[in-house]
Nucleic acid binder design. Structure first.
Lengths: 114, 114, 114, 114
DNA sequence: GTGGTCTAGACCACC
DNA sequence: GTGGTCTAGACCACA
């Protein structure tokens, strides 16, 4: 796995799980790897993976069964989508638009590039 | 001046100068405030301002006349625009598009929101 | 470690690392000391060492693994050599030659002294 | 007049006078411009020029006749040459040689480039 | 443990 | 007056 410098690894890991849920790759009830196993497989300290799982748990994306492991939550996809769409329209899109405006990039150019 | 937590102050200062150049508020040859003066005016340590100026110098946005101060470079606007537009089309826009796709947001929705 | 007055310490530190890479003393992948450790060992403030490391990072000589430390980059030696040789032939040597000429020192004298 | 960043302007000015003496352009007894006049002609603060003249006076290259101006000293050329040659052989040349060695540049390459 | 950022204050060279 | 460098010490995010 490759990481973007400048963004904390634990955030990138958490996000990758969200993306895989959205993509349908992971479904409610699926078990995800243990922090140790997953850390080893991507070359990251288990502590860092644990931090990602903690974050995902707080977001309600996964839940823990003590002694067994972590699992995708029932309504993971729904809650991720809701959060993400809200943030997208309220934060990312306006920021994107403002940036384009500052750079003198017309909406037409953007539409074409998309 | 208000600062976004989570982003280093020195980067925000540097960026604000770039924005002001792009907006035409600052022009080639204009002198910008001394590190002491500007630091005092925005409530930031002069060292931090100096770090911003150092960065802007490396980017070719400003240049120094020793013992006198810093000035907006001749082709500041051009170089900022070039860099920023490149980054916009090569990084920000694709990232934005991919994100929208992942969230199941159609191009139509985006165009309307813009 | 002894420092030449008149030259910023952080530059001398950076340069000493470059020299050690060129000399083969440091190789790609080698970890260099932490800013605290190295600062203590040479009697310099950790901030100053950090500034050296920042510079070396910009030059592509070292890279950072967050939370772990700094390491010699894969092609550190190559990039240092390339830069240094260019500067040598384009700047240092012509300057040296011109100086000798101005002082009326023949090439023969130089060759002998070398 | 163009100045090399990184080297104090007053040193560059002083040096340019030495060079012109060595080149025979300025001779013993010649009057050099007043600090005010010269400063204006090269776009430098008179204080800075004064500092150059002070340095040259200390080096015995020029002397001052109060109320009249500065003049090239009788044995200016001789003293400059002596000093410069000494420094050349004792400092510049060894430094140059060491640098070439570190970069793996053979004496043959240097001789050819010269 | 690691480095990153910021502050406060000092001293210096230069203009 | 200007910026450049350095120190000391603090707090923080990250692994």
């Amino acid at each position: 796995m490759e990481f973007d410098e400048n963004i904390p690894i634990y955030l990138q890991i958490a996000r990758s799980f969200c993306d895989r849920v959205l993509a349908g790759e992971l479904k409610a009830g699926d078990r995800i790897p243990s922090v140790r196993e997953y850390g080893a497989s991507i070359g990251v300290n288990p502590n860092t993976v644990a931090r990602s799982y903690e974050r995902l748990t707080n977001l309600g994306v996964i839940y823990q069964q003590r002694g067994i492991g972590f699992f995708i939550a029932e309504d993971a996809k729904k809650s991720i989508l809701k959060d993400a769409r809200e943030r997208f329209f309220n934060e990312e899109l306006p920021k994107f638009a403002e940036r384009a405006k500052l750079l003198g990039i017309s909406q037409k150019e953007i539409t074409e590039a998309l």
